[in-house]
Simulated scan of single mutants.
Amino acid sequence: MKYTLHQLQLFLEISQCKSITKTAETLHLSQPAVSIQLKNLQDQFSIPLTEVVGRKLYVTEFGMEIAEAAKKIIEEVDAINYKSLSYAGKLSGKIKISVASTGKYVMPYFLSDFMNKHKGVDLIMDVTNKTKVLRSMERNEVDFALVSVLPKKLKVNSVELMKNQLYFVGGSQLELKQVPTQKELFTKLPLIFREEGSATRNAMEQFTSKHSYQIRKKIELTSNEAVKQAVQAGLGFSIMPLIGIKNELKEKELQIIPVKGLPISTTWQVIWLSSKNLSPAATAYLEYLKINKERIIDSHFSWIKKYES
């Protein structure tokens, strides 16, 4: 057999994505290139690795065993590379971080200098909602997570980064001759929510419940970007993290509407399981955070002070 490491990496991704299209997008390849490599790998086995039912691709039981073996091989190759760098006196390894969706506006700035300095360190960052972030941490699938609310059921250590403030936001086309009353804002105007499991969704529901607001019409969207576009288009209003609407405020595409009791204020924190044995790369990253976080905040997030109440 003459299958290559590249083919094994590609098939491992197919087994996780269950889609040629998604695999191509993830690996930044064309769909034909993925299909050709899958065929070349399949040609070396007499038992099918995948099957197509209807228009959906499935990985066979045999294929899943090959994918599991491929994962072990790739991990061993990574270990060899990391050891080589270690012997050369360079920090090496892999850091896995799960980030609550609006944290994508924060986390890259706290990573860039560290990653540029340590070329032997690989980064895997998954951006998803709060529920999935905590699930990945509970299963010990990641080194760190970025959250705005500490989990109650997990024993974690944390490093505080910066404030996360949520404001009531409307489109710029809305001309308010006078600020609507609280009742008018929440009972007469459509309110746009994030999906279930989102920390922003939870914060909005806690706020409206606390004030006993009866929402007239609720719209649910599954990403912060989708909410922004909907609010800009005049579809409704929302309570949104300030960190995610910098450019829209600057370009006057969105406006903050003053509401008593807002902003909701939490703190972005990097957390990790108290019981976790951190790798040298992960330990070095924590030290970097503690030393450099204030400098990073001053360099990249000083604009927030303009809006803080």
Rank of each mutant, 00 (worst) to 15 (best):
S299F: 07
K177Y: 04
S46Q: 11
K96A: 10
E13I: 09
L161D: 03
A69E: 12
A233F: 01
I20F: 15
E220F: 05
N116A: 02
G89K: 05
G89Q: 08
L235S: 05
V121F: 01
G197I: 04
K104I: 10
D78R: 15
I20D: 03
S209L: 10
G89L: 02
Y87L: 06
K104D: 10
M240I: 11
E76K: 15
K246C: 07
Q206I: 09
I291A: 09
N140H: 07
G93C: 10
H28G: 00
R139F: 05
K183H: 07
N277K: 15
E160I: 06
L161P: 03
V52L: 14
H28L: 11
K217D: 12
K218T: 15
W303G: 01
E13K: 12
F193L: 11
A69T: 12
M162C: 01
Q165T: 12
S309I: 03
K250M: 07
L289V: 00
V52E: 13
K293Q: 10
E51Y: 13
S302Q: 14
I296E: 11
L111M: 01
S299W: 09
D122P: 07
A67F: 06
C17L: 09
M204H: 04
P280M: 01
T4M: 09
L154P: 04
T187P: 14
L174M: 05
E308F: 05
K132P: 03
I73R: 14
Q214G: 07
Q229T: 15
T131V: 09
I239Y: 03
Q182C: 05
E61T: 15
F237P: 01
N277Q: 14
Q44E: 15
V133N: 09
A88F: 07
K18D: 02
Y58G: 07
V59R: 13
N129M: 05
G171I: 09
Q37N: 14
P48G: 01
F301D: 02
T128R: 13
T200C: 03
P263A: 03
P32W: 01
L176K: 06
I20K: 03
C17N: 14
F193V: 01
S279F: 12
T267V: 08
Q232F: 13
S86K: 13
S148R: 10
